[in-house]
Structures are given as C-alpha cells and as structure tokens.
C-alpha cells in the first residue's frame, strides 16, 4: 500500500474547497432572508411606477448635477429633488426591498464576520469591498 503523506491528508484540495463554497452559497440561497431579497427585488423590478419615479429622480439629479456640485441649486430645485426622492422611497415595493436587503446584509455580515475571525483576514475588505464603495 502506498504511504500517504501528512500533507495529502491535511491539505484540502481545490475541488473540496470549491464544493464547500458551493454548499455555502446554496445554504445562503435557502435562507428566508435571501428568498425575501430575491422576491422583493423581483417585485420592485416589475413596479413600473417605482421605476418611473426613480428615472424622474435620476433625470432631475443629472439636470442639476453641476448646480448641486457647486452648492448653487435653488431652494425650489432642492425641494423638487427631495419630493422626487420621497416619491420613490415611499413606494411599498422600494421599502420592502430596502428592508429585505438590510436583513440579508446583516446575515452576510455575520457569515463574513465568522469567516474573517477564523482566517485572520477581513473577508469583505480582502475581496475589494471597501466601506465607501
């Protein structure tokens, strides 16, 4: 019988790590938080009123871009921008999506926190997700 080196037993092969990563993704996809996130995203995608409200807000931001950067937009323009923002944010589908995203974010932060604590590297930061970007 061939002798098996200690390294062969202790080192996880790439295929084993990839299987663990697939199991992790599958387990995360099965959580109530992830399913709610997908459902609310789907509902938001089909909410044409919300999409129109978002477009109206973005168009306004674009039209005022230079003035906003120079802090030179009038009070009326700022009020109009805020009204358009609220039109979007107060839609039920938007609020549901935001809540589901917040729940999923909490769960992902917990999972990544467990990984980070064990491996000695900050998972999110290592993978290029800065706190500001």
């Amino acid at each position: 019988m061939d002798e098996i080196g200690l390294n062969e037993i202790e080192v996880a092969s790439l295929s084993v790590v990839h299987a663990a990563e697939r199991d992790f993704a599958a387990a995360l996809a099965e959580t109530a938080q992830f399913k709610a996130f997908e459902q609310t995203y789907e509902a938001l995608s089909h909410d044409t009123t919300a999409q129109q409200a978002l477009s109206a807000y973005r168009d306004k931001v674009e039209s005022l871009n230079v003035l906003l950067q120079l802090n030179a937009a009038s009070e009326n323009e700022r009020a109009e921008l805020e009204r358009l923002r609220q039109d979007y944010l107060t839609r039920a589908t938007v609020q549901s999506y935001a809540a589901a995203q917040a729940d999923l974010t909490t769960l992902c932060q917990q999972a990544a926190g467990m990984i980070s604590a064990a491996i000695g590297l900050n998972y999110a930061a290592s993978c290029g997700a800065s706190c500001c970007g």
Partner: peptide, 16 residues
C-alpha cells in the same frame, strides 16, 4: 444550516 455550511467553508479554507 448556514452556520454548518459557513463552518465547513472555514475549515476547508484553513486547510487549503
């Protein structure tokens, strides 16, 4: 279930 999968991923990462 996610806890088990996370722990399994951690153990395999550490052994990579």
């Amino acid at each position: 279930e996610l806890y088990v999968a996370t722990d399994n991923l951690i153990q395999n990462l550490l052994a990579s």
